[in-house]
Design a protein around this nucleic acid. Structure first.
Lengths: 187, 187
DNA sequence: GATCCTCTATCTATCAGTTGATAGAGAATC
DNA sequence: GATTCTCTATCAACTGATAGATAGAGGATC
Protein backbone atom coordinates (compact mmCIF):
# COMPACT_ATOMS: atom_id res chain seq x y z
CA UNK A 1 0.00 0.00 0.00
CA UNK A 2 1.02 3.61 -0.51
CA UNK A 3 2.61 5.40 2.44
CA UNK A 4 0.45 7.29 4.88
CA UNK A 5 2.36 10.51 4.24
CA UNK A 6 1.71 10.34 0.51
CA UNK A 7 -1.99 9.85 1.13
CA UNK A 8 -2.12 12.65 3.68
CA UNK A 9 -0.41 15.01 1.26
CA UNK A 10 -2.90 14.12 -1.46
CA UNK A 11 -5.84 14.64 0.86
CA UNK A 12 -4.56 18.01 2.02
CA UNK A 13 -3.72 19.05 -1.55
CA UNK A 14 -7.19 18.12 -2.73
CA UNK A 15 -8.80 20.23 -0.03
CA UNK A 16 -6.47 23.14 -0.70
CA UNK A 17 -7.10 23.02 -4.45
CA UNK A 18 -10.85 23.02 -3.87
CA UNK A 19 -10.43 26.23 -1.87
CA UNK A 20 -7.57 28.00 -3.64
CA UNK A 21 -7.14 26.31 -7.00
CA UNK A 22 -4.03 24.90 -8.60
CA UNK A 23 -2.33 28.30 -8.50
CA UNK A 24 -3.15 28.63 -4.83
CA UNK A 25 -1.59 25.27 -3.95
CA UNK A 26 1.75 25.72 -2.21
CA UNK A 27 4.21 23.25 -0.82
CA UNK A 28 4.96 24.94 2.48
CA UNK A 29 1.38 25.34 3.64
CA UNK A 30 0.60 21.83 2.51
CA UNK A 31 3.58 20.46 4.42
CA UNK A 32 2.66 22.41 7.55
CA UNK A 33 -0.85 20.98 7.46
CA UNK A 34 0.44 17.43 7.18
CA UNK A 35 3.17 18.07 9.76
CA UNK A 36 6.18 17.55 7.52
CA UNK A 37 8.69 19.74 5.67
CA UNK A 38 8.04 20.94 2.15
CA UNK A 39 11.08 19.10 0.78
CA UNK A 40 9.44 15.83 1.76
CA UNK A 41 6.55 16.49 -0.59
CA UNK A 42 9.03 16.63 -3.45
CA UNK A 43 10.12 13.13 -2.52
CA UNK A 44 6.64 11.83 -3.37
CA UNK A 45 5.74 14.38 -6.04
CA UNK A 46 8.88 15.69 -7.76
CA UNK A 47 7.15 18.74 -9.20
CA UNK A 48 3.96 20.69 -8.64
CA UNK A 49 2.70 19.38 -11.97
CA UNK A 50 3.02 15.81 -10.68
CA UNK A 51 1.09 16.69 -7.54
CA UNK A 52 -1.62 18.55 -9.44
CA UNK A 53 -2.11 15.76 -11.95
CA UNK A 54 -2.16 13.15 -9.18
CA UNK A 55 -4.90 14.83 -7.17
CA UNK A 56 -7.01 15.59 -10.26
CA UNK A 57 -6.71 11.97 -11.35
CA UNK A 58 -7.61 10.71 -7.91
CA UNK A 59 -10.52 13.13 -7.88
CA UNK A 60 -12.22 11.69 -10.94
CA UNK A 61 -11.38 8.13 -9.94
CA UNK A 62 -13.10 8.65 -6.60
CA UNK A 63 -16.01 10.32 -8.36
CA UNK A 64 -16.33 7.36 -10.72
CA UNK A 65 -16.53 4.95 -7.78
CA UNK A 66 -19.11 7.11 -6.03
CA UNK A 67 -21.29 7.46 -9.12
CA UNK A 68 -21.14 3.74 -9.83
CA UNK A 69 -22.23 3.07 -6.28
CA UNK A 70 -25.16 5.41 -6.89
CA UNK A 71 -26.26 3.63 -10.03
CA UNK A 72 -24.66 0.98 -12.17
CA UNK A 73 -27.43 -0.57 -14.20
CA UNK A 74 -29.72 -1.25 -11.23
CA UNK A 75 -33.44 -0.75 -11.02
CA UNK A 76 -33.84 2.85 -9.88
CA UNK A 77 -32.13 5.25 -12.28
CA UNK A 78 -34.65 8.00 -11.50
CA UNK A 79 -33.60 7.97 -7.88
CA UNK A 80 -29.92 8.10 -8.83
CA UNK A 81 -30.69 11.15 -10.91
CA UNK A 82 -32.38 12.79 -7.94
CA UNK A 83 -29.27 12.12 -5.87
CA UNK A 84 -26.78 13.40 -8.44
CA UNK A 85 -26.70 17.06 -7.32
CA UNK A 86 -25.78 15.88 -3.83
CA UNK A 87 -22.41 14.72 -5.13
CA UNK A 88 -21.67 18.42 -5.67
CA UNK A 89 -23.43 19.57 -2.54
CA UNK A 90 -20.97 17.78 -0.26
CA UNK A 91 -18.11 20.06 -1.35
CA UNK A 92 -20.03 23.12 -0.25
CA UNK A 93 -20.75 21.45 3.06
CA UNK A 94 -17.00 21.18 3.60
CA UNK A 95 -16.10 24.81 4.27
CA UNK A 96 -17.70 26.15 1.11
CA UNK A 97 -15.37 24.27 -1.18
CA UNK A 98 -16.16 23.58 -4.81
CA UNK A 99 -15.43 20.86 -7.30
CA UNK A 100 -11.70 20.62 -7.87
CA UNK A 101 -12.28 20.47 -11.60
CA UNK A 102 -14.61 23.46 -11.74
CA UNK A 103 -11.91 25.55 -10.10
CA UNK A 104 -9.29 24.15 -12.42
CA UNK A 105 -11.52 24.77 -15.43
CA UNK A 106 -11.46 28.45 -14.54
CA UNK A 107 -7.67 28.21 -14.28
CA UNK A 108 -7.45 26.49 -17.65
CA UNK A 109 -4.96 28.96 -19.16
CA UNK A 110 -2.47 28.43 -16.35
CA UNK A 111 -2.78 24.67 -16.13
CA UNK A 112 0.00 22.32 -17.27
CA UNK A 113 -1.20 19.81 -19.86
CA UNK A 114 -1.02 16.73 -17.61
CA UNK A 115 -3.37 18.45 -15.17
CA UNK A 116 -5.71 19.61 -17.93
CA UNK A 117 -6.09 16.03 -19.10
CA UNK A 118 -7.29 14.82 -15.70
CA UNK A 119 -9.69 17.74 -15.40
CA UNK A 120 -11.25 16.78 -18.71
CA UNK A 121 -11.56 13.19 -17.54
CA UNK A 122 -13.70 14.32 -14.60
CA UNK A 123 -16.19 15.98 -16.91
CA UNK A 124 -16.11 12.96 -19.21
CA UNK A 125 -16.99 10.41 -16.56
CA UNK A 126 -19.74 12.61 -15.11
CA UNK A 127 -21.32 13.13 -18.51
CA UNK A 128 -20.99 9.45 -19.44
CA UNK A 129 -22.65 8.38 -16.19
CA UNK A 130 -25.45 10.92 -16.56
CA UNK A 131 -26.01 9.81 -20.15
CA UNK A 132 -26.41 6.19 -19.07
CA UNK A 133 -28.74 7.05 -16.22
CA UNK A 134 -30.87 9.36 -18.35
CA UNK A 135 -31.18 6.73 -21.05
CA UNK A 136 -32.40 4.26 -18.43
CA UNK A 137 -34.66 6.67 -16.57
CA UNK A 138 -36.34 8.46 -19.49
CA UNK A 139 -37.47 7.79 -23.01
CA UNK A 140 -34.78 10.01 -24.50
CA UNK A 141 -32.57 8.41 -27.13
CA UNK A 142 -28.83 8.27 -26.55
CA UNK A 143 -28.08 11.52 -28.39
CA UNK A 144 -30.74 13.43 -26.46
CA UNK A 145 -29.56 11.85 -23.22
CA UNK A 146 -26.02 12.99 -23.83
CA UNK A 147 -27.11 16.53 -24.67
CA UNK A 148 -29.12 16.62 -21.47
CA UNK A 149 -26.29 15.07 -19.50
CA UNK A 150 -23.94 17.85 -20.56
CA UNK A 151 -26.56 20.44 -19.71
CA UNK A 152 -27.12 19.02 -16.24
CA UNK A 153 -23.41 18.76 -15.51
CA UNK A 154 -22.73 22.35 -16.55
CA UNK A 155 -25.77 23.71 -14.73
CA UNK A 156 -24.98 21.91 -11.47
CA UNK A 157 -21.39 23.14 -11.61
CA UNK A 158 -22.68 26.66 -12.17
CA UNK A 159 -25.03 26.34 -9.21
CA UNK A 160 -22.17 25.25 -7.00
CA UNK A 161 -20.10 28.25 -8.10
CA UNK A 162 -22.93 30.68 -7.34
CA UNK A 163 -23.50 29.16 -3.92
CA UNK A 164 -19.81 29.50 -3.12
CA UNK A 165 -19.78 33.14 -4.15
CA UNK A 166 -22.50 33.75 -1.55
CA UNK A 167 -21.08 31.34 1.02
CA UNK A 168 -24.62 30.01 1.24
CA UNK A 169 -25.49 26.40 0.58
CA UNK A 170 -29.20 27.24 0.43
CA UNK A 171 -28.44 29.06 -2.83
CA UNK A 172 -27.36 25.71 -4.25
CA UNK A 173 -30.49 23.95 -3.04
CA UNK A 174 -32.72 26.67 -4.44
CA UNK A 175 -31.00 26.51 -7.81
CA UNK A 176 -31.39 22.73 -8.02
CA UNK A 177 -35.07 23.15 -7.20
CA UNK A 178 -35.38 25.74 -9.92
CA UNK A 179 -33.71 23.42 -12.42
CA UNK A 180 -36.35 20.84 -11.58
CA UNK A 181 -39.12 23.41 -11.81
CA UNK A 182 -37.83 24.45 -15.24
CA UNK A 183 -37.62 20.87 -16.48
CA UNK A 184 -33.86 20.63 -16.81
CA UNK A 185 -33.73 18.00 -14.09
CA UNK A 186 -36.41 15.31 -13.82
CA UNK A 187 -38.37 15.11 -10.58
CA UNK B 1 -12.07 62.51 -17.92
CA UNK B 2 -9.86 59.84 -16.38
CA UNK B 3 -6.33 59.53 -17.71
CA UNK B 4 -5.61 57.27 -20.63
CA UNK B 5 -3.10 55.30 -18.63
CA UNK B 6 -5.60 54.58 -15.91
CA UNK B 7 -8.10 53.33 -18.46
CA UNK B 8 -5.50 51.23 -20.25
CA UNK B 9 -4.44 49.64 -16.98
CA UNK B 10 -8.05 48.81 -16.15
CA UNK B 11 -8.65 47.31 -19.58
CA UNK B 12 -5.52 45.18 -19.37
CA UNK B 13 -6.32 44.15 -15.80
CA UNK B 14 -9.82 43.15 -16.79
CA UNK B 15 -8.52 40.94 -19.59
CA UNK B 16 -5.85 39.42 -17.36
CA UNK B 17 -8.32 38.66 -14.59
CA UNK B 18 -10.65 36.97 -17.05
CA UNK B 19 -7.77 34.68 -18.03
CA UNK B 20 -5.88 34.23 -14.77
CA UNK B 21 -8.14 35.41 -11.99
CA UNK B 22 -7.48 37.88 -9.20
CA UNK B 23 -4.61 35.77 -7.88
CA UNK B 24 -3.09 35.62 -11.34
CA UNK B 25 -3.14 39.40 -11.74
CA UNK B 26 0.33 40.88 -11.36
CA UNK B 27 1.62 44.40 -11.58
CA UNK B 28 4.70 43.78 -13.70
CA UNK B 29 2.99 41.90 -16.51
CA UNK B 30 0.18 44.41 -16.49
CA UNK B 31 2.63 47.29 -16.72
CA UNK B 32 4.54 45.63 -19.54
CA UNK B 33 1.36 45.17 -21.52
CA UNK B 34 0.41 48.82 -21.13
CA UNK B 35 3.99 49.95 -21.77
CA UNK B 36 4.68 51.52 -18.38
CA UNK B 37 6.51 50.54 -15.20
CA UNK B 38 4.78 48.67 -12.41
CA UNK B 39 5.32 51.49 -9.91
CA UNK B 40 3.13 53.70 -12.07
CA UNK B 41 0.15 51.41 -11.55
CA UNK B 42 0.45 52.04 -7.82
CA UNK B 43 0.00 55.74 -8.50
CA UNK B 44 -3.50 55.07 -9.84
CA UNK B 45 -4.30 52.02 -7.72
CA UNK B 46 -2.35 52.13 -4.43
CA UNK B 47 -2.89 48.45 -3.69
CA UNK B 48 -3.91 45.32 -5.57
CA UNK B 49 -7.17 45.35 -3.64
CA UNK B 50 -7.96 48.79 -5.07
CA UNK B 51 -7.26 47.59 -8.58
CA UNK B 52 -9.26 44.39 -8.17
CA UNK B 53 -12.26 46.19 -6.74
CA UNK B 54 -12.07 48.86 -9.46
CA UNK B 55 -12.13 46.40 -12.33
CA UNK B 56 -14.86 44.27 -10.78
CA UNK B 57 -16.96 47.39 -10.22
CA UNK B 58 -16.37 48.58 -13.77
CA UNK B 59 -17.25 45.10 -14.97
CA UNK B 60 -20.74 45.09 -13.54
CA UNK B 61 -21.31 48.73 -14.46
CA UNK B 62 -20.49 47.96 -18.09
CA UNK B 63 -22.68 44.88 -17.93
CA UNK B 64 -25.55 46.95 -16.57
CA UNK B 65 -25.27 49.37 -19.49
CA UNK B 66 -25.12 46.54 -22.01
CA UNK B 67 -28.13 44.73 -20.54
CA UNK B 68 -30.16 47.94 -20.41
CA UNK B 69 -29.36 48.52 -24.07
CA UNK B 70 -30.63 45.02 -24.77
CA UNK B 71 -33.91 45.58 -22.98
CA UNK B 72 -35.16 48.31 -20.73
CA UNK B 73 -38.93 48.07 -20.77
CA UNK B 74 -39.27 48.00 -24.56
CA UNK B 75 -41.53 45.85 -26.66
CA UNK B 76 -39.51 42.70 -27.27
CA UNK B 77 -38.46 41.06 -24.01
CA UNK B 78 -38.50 37.60 -25.58
CA UNK B 79 -35.86 38.68 -28.05
CA UNK B 80 -33.71 40.15 -25.28
CA UNK B 81 -33.90 36.83 -23.49
CA UNK B 82 -32.73 35.05 -26.62
CA UNK B 83 -29.79 37.40 -26.80
CA UNK B 84 -28.79 37.10 -23.15
CA UNK B 85 -26.41 34.12 -23.49
CA UNK B 86 -24.47 36.11 -26.09
CA UNK B 87 -23.35 38.51 -23.38
CA UNK B 88 -21.37 35.57 -21.98
CA UNK B 89 -20.38 34.21 -25.38
CA UNK B 90 -18.29 37.25 -26.25
CA UNK B 91 -15.79 36.48 -23.46
CA UNK B 92 -15.10 33.07 -24.94
CA UNK B 93 -14.64 34.68 -28.35
CA UNK B 94 -11.84 36.76 -26.83
CA UNK B 95 -9.15 34.13 -26.37
CA UNK B 96 -11.31 31.74 -24.41
CA UNK B 97 -11.79 34.13 -21.52
CA UNK B 98 -14.60 33.82 -19.00
CA UNK B 99 -16.69 36.18 -16.95
CA UNK B 100 -14.50 38.06 -14.51
CA UNK B 101 -16.96 37.35 -11.74
CA UNK B 102 -17.23 33.64 -12.43
CA UNK B 103 -13.49 33.34 -12.04
CA UNK B 104 -13.54 35.46 -8.93
CA UNK B 105 -16.40 33.41 -7.51
CA UNK B 106 -14.14 30.40 -7.68
CA UNK B 107 -11.45 32.43 -5.90
CA UNK B 108 -13.90 33.54 -3.23
CA UNK B 109 -11.80 32.34 -0.30
CA UNK B 110 -8.80 34.41 -1.39
CA UNK B 111 -10.69 37.56 -2.30
CA UNK B 112 -10.46 40.74 -0.21
CA UNK B 113 -13.87 41.95 0.95
CA UNK B 114 -14.03 45.05 -1.30
CA UNK B 115 -13.57 42.79 -4.32
CA UNK B 116 -16.12 40.28 -3.10
CA UNK B 117 -18.71 43.02 -2.86
CA UNK B 118 -18.32 44.01 -6.50
CA UNK B 119 -18.44 40.38 -7.59
CA UNK B 120 -21.76 39.98 -5.81
CA UNK B 121 -23.06 43.12 -7.49
CA UNK B 122 -22.45 41.58 -10.90
CA UNK B 123 -24.66 38.61 -10.06
CA UNK B 124 -27.24 40.93 -8.53
CA UNK B 125 -27.65 43.12 -11.59
CA UNK B 126 -27.78 40.13 -13.94
CA UNK B 127 -30.45 38.42 -11.87
CA UNK B 128 -32.44 41.63 -11.47
CA UNK B 129 -32.39 42.25 -15.22
CA UNK B 130 -33.35 38.66 -16.03
CA UNK B 131 -36.18 38.83 -13.51
CA UNK B 132 -37.60 41.95 -15.16
CA UNK B 133 -37.31 40.52 -18.65
CA UNK B 134 -38.84 37.18 -17.65
CA UNK B 135 -41.74 38.93 -15.96
CA UNK B 136 -42.37 40.87 -19.16
CA UNK B 137 -41.83 37.99 -21.57
CA UNK B 138 -43.69 35.22 -19.77
CA UNK B 139 -46.70 34.75 -17.52
CA UNK B 140 -44.54 33.87 -14.53
CA UNK B 141 -45.13 35.91 -11.40
CA UNK B 142 -42.27 37.90 -9.91
CA UNK B 143 -41.19 35.17 -7.49
CA UNK B 144 -41.13 32.52 -10.22
CA UNK B 145 -39.32 34.93 -12.54
CA UNK B 146 -36.63 35.52 -9.96
CA UNK B 147 -36.15 31.83 -9.31
CA UNK B 148 -35.85 31.26 -13.03
CA UNK B 149 -33.54 34.24 -13.40
CA UNK B 150 -31.13 32.78 -10.86
CA UNK B 151 -31.28 29.41 -12.58
CA UNK B 152 -30.51 30.90 -15.98
CA UNK B 153 -27.66 32.99 -14.65
CA UNK B 154 -26.01 30.04 -12.89
CA UNK B 155 -26.53 27.70 -15.84
CA UNK B 156 -25.11 30.12 -18.40
CA UNK B 157 -22.07 30.74 -16.19
CA UNK B 158 -21.62 26.97 -15.90
CA UNK B 159 -21.84 26.58 -19.66
CA UNK B 160 -19.18 29.20 -20.13
CA UNK B 161 -16.89 27.43 -17.68
CA UNK B 162 -17.31 24.09 -19.44
CA UNK B 163 -16.61 25.63 -22.84
CA UNK B 164 -13.43 27.20 -21.49
CA UNK B 165 -12.24 23.90 -20.08
CA UNK B 166 -12.47 22.47 -23.60
CA UNK B 167 -11.26 25.62 -25.34
CA UNK B 168 -14.26 25.13 -27.61
CA UNK B 169 -16.93 27.75 -28.06
CA UNK B 170 -19.22 25.25 -29.78
CA UNK B 171 -19.54 23.54 -26.40
CA UNK B 172 -21.13 26.75 -25.12
CA UNK B 173 -23.53 26.98 -28.07
CA UNK B 174 -24.54 23.35 -27.68
CA UNK B 175 -25.22 23.82 -23.97
CA UNK B 176 -27.38 26.88 -24.55
CA UNK B 177 -29.33 24.91 -27.16
CA UNK B 178 -29.77 22.09 -24.65
CA UNK B 179 -31.03 24.53 -22.02
CA UNK B 180 -33.66 25.65 -24.52
CA UNK B 181 -34.50 22.06 -25.40
CA UNK B 182 -34.91 21.26 -21.71
CA UNK B 183 -37.14 24.27 -21.09
CA UNK B 184 -34.79 26.23 -18.85
CA UNK B 185 -34.50 28.98 -21.44
CA UNK B 186 -37.49 30.07 -23.49
CA UNK B 187 -37.20 29.79 -27.24
C1' DG C 1 27.25 -11.51 15.72
C1' DA C 2 29.68 -7.77 13.85
C1' DT C 3 30.55 -5.06 9.88
C1' DC C 4 29.31 -3.10 5.66
C1' DC C 5 26.11 -1.64 2.19
C1' DT C 6 21.82 0.00 0.18
C1' DC C 7 17.41 1.92 0.14
C1' DT C 8 13.69 4.69 2.08
C1' DA C 9 12.21 8.64 4.18
C1' DT C 10 12.92 12.81 6.18
C1' DC C 11 15.37 16.84 7.41
C1' DT C 12 18.25 21.50 7.09
C1' DA C 13 19.79 24.96 4.31
C1' DT C 14 19.73 27.44 0.43
C1' DC C 15 18.91 29.23 -4.32
C1' DA C 16 16.74 31.85 -7.94
C1' DG C 17 12.70 33.85 -9.46
C1' DT C 18 8.42 36.34 -8.58
C1' DT C 19 5.44 39.54 -6.31
C1' DG C 20 3.25 43.64 -3.93
C1' DA C 21 4.80 47.62 -2.21
C1' DT C 22 7.61 51.90 -1.08
C1' DA C 23 10.96 55.86 -1.19
C1' DG C 24 12.67 59.25 -3.62
C1' DA C 25 14.46 61.37 -7.89
C1' DG C 26 13.18 63.36 -12.19
C1' DA C 27 10.18 64.84 -15.97
C1' DA C 28 6.00 66.84 -17.78
C1' DT C 29 2.13 69.82 -17.35
C1' DC C 30 -0.41 73.72 -15.83
C1' DG D 1 6.82 77.23 -9.02
C1' DA D 2 3.50 73.83 -7.85
C1' DT D 3 1.27 69.81 -9.10
C1' DT D 4 0.87 65.69 -11.58
C1' DC D 5 2.80 61.81 -13.40
C1' DT D 6 6.44 58.37 -14.24
C1' DC D 7 10.70 56.37 -13.41
C1' DT D 8 14.80 53.88 -10.93
C1' DA D 9 16.05 51.26 -7.30
C1' DT D 10 15.10 48.50 -3.74
C1' DC D 11 12.79 45.73 -0.01
C1' DA D 12 10.66 41.85 2.29
C1' DA D 13 7.92 38.00 1.69
C1' DC D 14 6.84 33.99 -0.72
C1' DT D 15 7.46 30.08 -3.92
C1' DG D 16 9.12 25.85 -6.42
C1' DA D 17 12.98 23.39 -6.47
C1' DT D 18 17.57 21.26 -5.31
C1' DA D 19 21.75 19.63 -2.76
C1' DG D 20 23.37 17.27 0.70
C1' DA D 21 23.20 15.36 5.51
C1' DT D 22 21.06 12.10 8.60
C1' DA D 23 18.63 8.29 10.69
C1' DG D 24 16.85 3.87 10.51
C1' DA D 25 15.49 -0.65 8.40
C1' DG D 26 16.84 -4.68 6.11
C1' DG D 27 20.05 -7.56 3.93
C1' DA D 28 24.43 -9.37 2.49
C1' DT D 29 29.22 -10.48 3.63
C1' DC D 30 32.79 -11.74 6.53
Amino acid sequence: MGSNVREEVMAAAKRAAQSHGYTGLNFRELAAEVGIKSATIHYYFPTKVDLGAAIAKRYWEDSQVLLDSLWNGGNDPARALMEYPNTFRVSLEQDNRICLCSFMSAEHDDLPDPVKREVSAFADINIAWLTRVLSAATDMDTAASERRARAIFAAVAGAQLMARSRSDISVFDALIDSYREAGLLPG
